[in-house]
């Protein structure tokens, strides 16, 4: 069992950031395509806008981390051109992933640009023209971006799960775990940014004010969705352990690093499960149930408003940390 780590913070950070970006774009695109009409249309448009702004940034920062970790950044082009110029794809998940990053980066940037308030930024004829074009391309771009975002979220897990020699990664539920975590962290990022933007009433020009009842109702739906995703993630983590437990030898040994007494047990149970999943689920669930069951108006302290999404983002980062590091400090058993 080797103790040195070949993949460390740059890779962990990349997997996390790619997940956040993919989740934000997936939420934004789904709101654009199947969002509510009528009273909440404007609020839904704001969620979609924030998601679109958040989306490309983490993915681009994350891939920059990876490229500069290589030491020779220009060599990263080999991922796309390979050793024969005509051979652009090979069966490696990393090769597919590099194409996904490229397409995701390009399309989500266009998608984000289509949301910019061109009328106020540029003004005049050009602003009018760009704004009109932005509104036109928004839905078609969402059709492209949502599958790309889901592909990004799944690929970050397949990248790890494709390797039989790393028993902790080589599990059929890892893609589900990473995808659910990606969407829940992306949604948390949207909720967090929206909080900061609306700390002062009317902070964004033309946006709905915080006192608006539509704000509370939209928030209620977003947070309910997040709590459901947290529950789904807990179920998937349960499945993860069940698969490992039912596998003979290597995976069974590997999962011991996460179980009590293992090297990463504290990080996993405190960082991922307690801080990242259970605490936000209980606190947010409490306020949600108060509204759903007792019929109170949905409101909560500002501290919880901000800290719950941060806790979920932290939990998502710790999940990537535990999986990436845990996979490397365990290995095949037997000589």
């Amino acid at each position: 069992m080797e103790q040195h780590l070949m993949w460390h913070w740059p890779v962990i950070g990349y997997l996390f950031l790619a997940g956040v970006g993919a989740g934000a774009i997936a939420v934004s695109g789904i709101v654009v395509l199947w969002g509510p009409a009528g009273e909440f249309r404007h609020r839904a448009a704001l969620v979609a806008r924030l998601g679109a702004y958040i989306g490309p940034l983490p993915a681009l920062v994350g891939s920059a981390l990876l490229i500069f970790e290589l030491g020779r950044p220009y060599r990263a082009l080999n991922l796309l051109t390979s050793n024969f110029w005509f051979m652009v794809l090979n069966p490696s998940p990393m090769n597919w992933g590099s194409w996904f990053i490229l397409l995701f980066g390009v399309f989500t940037t266009v998608y984000a640009l289509s949301f910019l308030p061109w009328r106020t930024l540029l003004g005049g004829e050009w602003g009018e023209r760009l704004a009109a074009r932005g509104e036109r391309v928004r839905s078609p771009m969402a059709v492209v971006c949502v599958p790309l975002a889901i592909a990004m979220a799944i690929y970050t897990a397949i990248l790890l799960a494709a390797i039989p020699a790393r028993p902790l990664w080589h599990t059929p539920v890892l893609w589900l775990l990473f995808t659910v975590s990606a969407i829940s962290t992306g949604l948390s990022a949207i909720i967090l940014v929206q909080r900061f933007m609306f700390r002062k009433p009317g902070a964004v020009r033309g946006a709905v004010r915080r006192e608006d009842p539509a704000f509370r109702v939209t928030e209620y739906y977003l947070v309910s969705m997040k709590v459901l995703l947290i529950i789904a993630e807990l179920v998937v983590i349960g499945l993860f352990f069940m698969f490992a437990h039912m596998t003979i030898n290597s995976a069974n040994f590997a999962v011991q690093v996460l179980l009590p007494g293992g090297e990463l047990a504290t990080t996993f149970w405190v960082g991922v499960i307690l801080v990242g999943l259970l605490m936000p689920a209980f606190i947010e669930g409490f306020y949600l149930l108060r509204t759903a069951v007792l019929g109170h108006e949905f409101e909560w302290p500002y501290v919880i408003n901000v800290s719950a999404p941060i806790a979920i983002l932290f939990g998502g980062l710790m999940l990537r940390y535990v999986i990436v590091v845990g996979g490397q400090i365990t290995g095949p058993v037997g000589i």
Partner: peptide
């Protein structure tokens, strides 16, 4: 051609 990603080292 190698980029030093170490994917092979894990595999």
């Amino acid at each position: 051609v190698c980029i030093g990603c170490l994917y092979c080292a894990h595999a």
